[in-house]
Design a protein around this nucleic acid. Structure first.
Length: 512
RNA sequence: GGACCCAUCGUCUAACGGUUAGGACUCAGCCCUUUCACGGCUGCAAUAGGGAUUCGAAUUCCCUUGGGUUCACCA
């Protein structure tokens, strides 16, 4: 009961880390930190055919971007090095052989053609196409072949795999922290391969052996592993490690926002939101998948959002820093059902974090965007823009993109506002407003601009409200934007006067 | 298809067997701001269906339906 909490995140470096995988990592991390435990990163790279250049680096960078620290792993080392399964290859065979000696596993020499044939045959007779306690007796393995033939095949160097020998009918039951008791009969399972012909272990063997060797106390992983969990339980039993078996927690899946099924790479492309934590360029095809980081999301916002997709505290709180998540997290409050991803909610989370950031933090994020757009402004000016624009946008970059008028004169003017608000004398009044502004000092306050504006309106007998939108359009080109007087004061008297004069030369009143 | 998992507003979710079934996102309206946004208030909106147990069921049990995962020498 009181053994130290040791959890692992065990991705396969076959591509970019999926956002669902990120959430699995996050839950592992939160659980570890909550219980003063250890977070281990283990690379499950036993399939040499699926190795993808850069995937391991991508995984580590993603975790680090989101603020998850790894306590033991390929980079930080640890008492159970190495942490890449390919480098642990020699360790697995002995356990497979131990099972053979105990009569709990066997050699199988079937070719893939023979396996296909067997499956087709069983399917044709409406049986489950499984390599199980029944069908194994008609295959080429150390259960059916004579001891001499097995030995000669082995000595001969023939290809073989090692399969687990499951009892014909036995109930396997285990407890899952999020799902309760799960019961499956071995009659429904098949004799899975443990050691492949290339000498590498399959996931099942490697996973169980490593979890045992590394003292893993809790296996927290996606629900897609639930069907193979009984096999893992059998392996613990067969290897005599029942007492050290970790507790299981199978997490609900992240589902498509619309329609059915698991969230996939294509959904992001189609619906316009990232499915990956960071940008990823496929080294083979060159295809680019966009990530949260490059899309302008804050790592805290992404972590917060992910945490709330499948977990919920006992109160109604939704905004949590990582430390607060650690404090509040518990596996018992993870939900059972899959969660559909909601883009709107993701925007909302990001917006909430944007509001909390200090101007200088936001400045750092958008500095490069200002430059990329060819704008020239000092930090102080940009930070003032941040203060005025921050509440209107969901992403920091939109401060620049939607507030371009802070950095350059408008070249186009919102036509719908012009059509709606312009009257014969509008240009004339705007011109008078510009003249009023000329009497102000260069460092005039927002209030002074506002008063001058009101005086001009009054002089013409116009309600200020009817000129407010036109003024905004000639100054910014847009019908909506930052608070107008603050905006004008920040841009500066001479620029504003110039903009008004340029605009009234371009905009003409027309009836209809 | 077999096995397993799941089922509360459109979405994420809350609710010791006793609540007018709560919150958040979205949407609509109002207030604030002489615009927009933020914020505040209000509204729309759910226990998949059927049985059983119980004084009482969203909550326990069974069936149906629906959805999901998984059935490789991939993880």
């Amino acid at each position: 009961m009181s053994r130290p909490v040791r959890v692992r995140f065990a991705p396969s470096p076959t591509g970019p880390l999926h956002i669902g995988g990120v959430r699995t990592a996050l839950y592992n991390y939160l659980f570890a930190k909550k219980n003063n435990g250890t977070m281990i990163l283990r690379l499950e790279d036993t399939d040499q055919t699926r190795f993808v250049e850069g995937a391991e680096k991508y995984i580590k960078e993603s975790l680090s971007w989101l603020g998850m620290e790894i306590h033991e792993g390929p980079d930080q080392g640890g008492p159970h090095s190495p942490y890449r399964q390919s480098e642990r290859k020699p360790m697995y065979r002995q356990y497979a052989e131990q099972l053979i000696e105990a009569g709990l596993a066997y050699y199988a020499f079937d070719t893939s053609e023979e396996l296909d044939e067997m499956r087709k045959r069983l399917e044709a007779s409406k049986m489950q196409p499984a390599y199980d306690s029944v069908s194994r007796m008609s295959m080429k393995n150390s259960l059916t072949l004579s001891a001499d033939e097995v030995k000669s095949r082995l000595d001969n160097g023939d290809d073989y795999v090692i399969r687990i020998k499951l009892p014909r009918k036995e109930e396997v039951r285990f407890h899952d922290i999020v799902r309760g008791w799960v019961v499956v009969s071995t009659g429904q399972m098949d004799d899975k391969v443990l050691l492949k012909a290339d000498g590498m272990p399959t996931y099942h063997l490697a996973n169980v052996v490593d979890d045992y060797l590394m003292g893993i106390s809790h296996v927290i992983r996606g629900e897609e592993w639930l069907p193979s969990a009984p096999l893992h339980v059998m392996l613990y039993k067969f290897l005599g490690w029942e007492d050290a078996m970790p507790e299981f927690a199978h997490l609900p899946l992240l589902l498509k926002p619309e329609g059915n099924g698991k969230l996939s790479k294509r959904d992001g492309d189609r619906l316009g939101f990232p499915v990956f934590p960071m940008d990823w360029i496929d080294p083979k095809t060159g295809d680019k998948s966009s990530g949260y980081r490059e899309s302008g999301y804050f790592p805290e916002a992404v972590a917060n959002m992910l945490a709330m997709l499948g977990w919920h505290p006992s109160d109604n709180r939704e905004l949590f820093t990582i430390d607060e998540l650690i404090d509040a997290f518990s596996l018992e409050r993870v939900s059972k059902s899959g969660a559909k991803f909601d883009v709107q909610k993701a925007y909302w989370f990001n917006q909430q974090y944007l509001q909390k950031k200090s101007p200088s933090e936001v400045y750092k994020m958008i500095e490069s965007i200002v430059e990329e757009n060819g704008f020239d402004a000092c930090q102080e000016y940009i930070e003032s823009v941040v203060v005025l624009m921050r509440e209107k946008v969901q992403f920091a970059k939109d401060i620049v993109l939607q507030g371009q008028y802070f950095f350059k004169d408008p070249t186009e003017y919102d036509q719908t506002v012009i059509q709606k608000k312009w009257k014969e004398n509008t240009n004339q009044i705007l011109g008078d407003i510009a003249k009023k502004f000329e009497t102000l000092s260069e460092a005039a306050s927002p209030e002074e601009y506002e008063n001058s504006f009101k005086e001009a309106c009054e002089y013409h007998g116009e309600k200020p409200g009817s000129l407010l939108q036109p003024l905004r359009v000639v100054v910014s080109g847009q019908g909506v934007g930052a608070p107008i007087w603050d905006m004008i004061a920040l841009i500066g008297r001479d620029y504003i006067i110039n903009r008004i004069q340029t605009a009234i030369g371009k905009i003409s009143f027309s009836i209809g």
